[in-house]
């Protein structure tokens, strides 16, 4: 498989107050994200996860090292538009990324900017709204929709650019459980059906259960990187980084210490129940 995004010794610092040393939010990040994969980036507030996301389409530019999007260097200003068309970004607050006061006008915003012909815009808007399950709201006013629906409109607005990758920068943080579920199932479907690479930045551990790969950020560096099973069994280390593990893993970890022969990597409720049943019966 080919590489969607690659970072090399990526460093980034936010401007500091006068007389103070700049604090590095990213301190040497080397990553390669494969095309078509579903990647979840976890970390507590201030771990650098959101900063990392913003370097993926040139909203923030590296202070050291490089970010390549499909081989294009984000520091090359002439490539910026092409990079942003390839990597769409959805942000935390749904209200602050909706531009127009009619749903279809908002979804059309990016293709309009890209100079796509009118008939083609119409097709893309309709396709994008269907892909996120919001087609029936095509002429609605976005401010009257629920949080989850607004985020799906924002995702549609990004898909209308026909990107290869979507980055969701804590896009579920302000939503209620239903809205979160709506957004998650939408991006999972886009990943499966359209093969769009998804990079989901979050601090909700259970959103990582179905990911292909989990990256845990801590103190501006990659602290863990692997499949959800590989990452979640490191219960102590995750806790030390200010993250909680799913209750399933917590329970298995405790039972394991109590001497029950259970595996640690049964993440879902069903798998966990199966593992415990097997261990008890085997006794």
């Amino acid at each position: 498989m080919s590489t969607m995004i690659e970072t090399r010794e990526l460093r980034f610092a936010y401007p500091a107050d006068e007389g103070q040393k700049p604090v590095f939010a990213l301190r040497g990040v080397d990553l390669e994200i494969e095309k078509g994969s579903f990647v979840v980036v976890l970390g507590h507030n201030g771990s650098g996860k959101s900063t990392l996301a913003k370097t993926f389409n040139g909203v923030l530019l590296p202070a050291g090292g490089k970010v390549y999007v499909e081989g294009m260097d984000t520091l090359d200003e002439s490539l910026l538009l092409a990079i942003r068309q390839r990597v769409g970004m959805v942000f935390q607050n749904p209200d602050n990324q909706i531009v127009a006061n009619v749903v279809e006008e908002d979804v059309a915003f990016a293709p309009e900017n890209l100079g796509v012909p009118t008939e083609e815009i119409r097709r893309r808007v309709d396709d994008a709204l269907k892909a996120v399950g919001m087609y029936e709201f095509v002429t609605h006013a976005p401010h009257l929709l629920s949080g989850g629906q607004k985020q799906r409109i924002a995702i549609a607005g990004v898909i209308a650019m026909e990107p290869d990758c979507i980055v969701l920068d804590e896009a579920t943080a302000m939503l209620d459980p239903i809205g979160r579920q709506e957004v998650l199932s939408t991006v999972h479907r886009l990943n499966m059906e359209k093969g769009i690479t998804v990079i989901l930045i979050t601090h909700h551990m259970n959103e990582a259960e179905d990911a292909d790969r989990v990256i845990v950020m801590d103190d501006g560096k990659v602290a863990m990187d692997g499949t959800p099973r590989e990452v979640f069994v490191q219960v102590e280390d995750l806790r030390a980084m200010g993250l909680t593990v799913p209750d399933t893993v917590d329970l298995l970890d405790r039972l394991h210490k109590d001497g029950l022969p259970v595996p640690l990597d049964a993440l879902t409720v069903e798998a966990c129940a199966d593992a415990i049943t097997a261990a008890l019966r085997g006794n």
């Binding site: 538009l81 900017n113 815009i121």
Partner: peptide
């Protein structure tokens, strides 16, 4: 935040813009 979101959606002024 809106300005950033607009830039991320390739907004670069009125030049070359088409319309729905």
């Amino acid at each position: 935040e809106l300005a950033t979101a607009m830039e991320c959606r390739c907004y670069h002024g009125g030049e070359g813009r088409t319309k729905l």
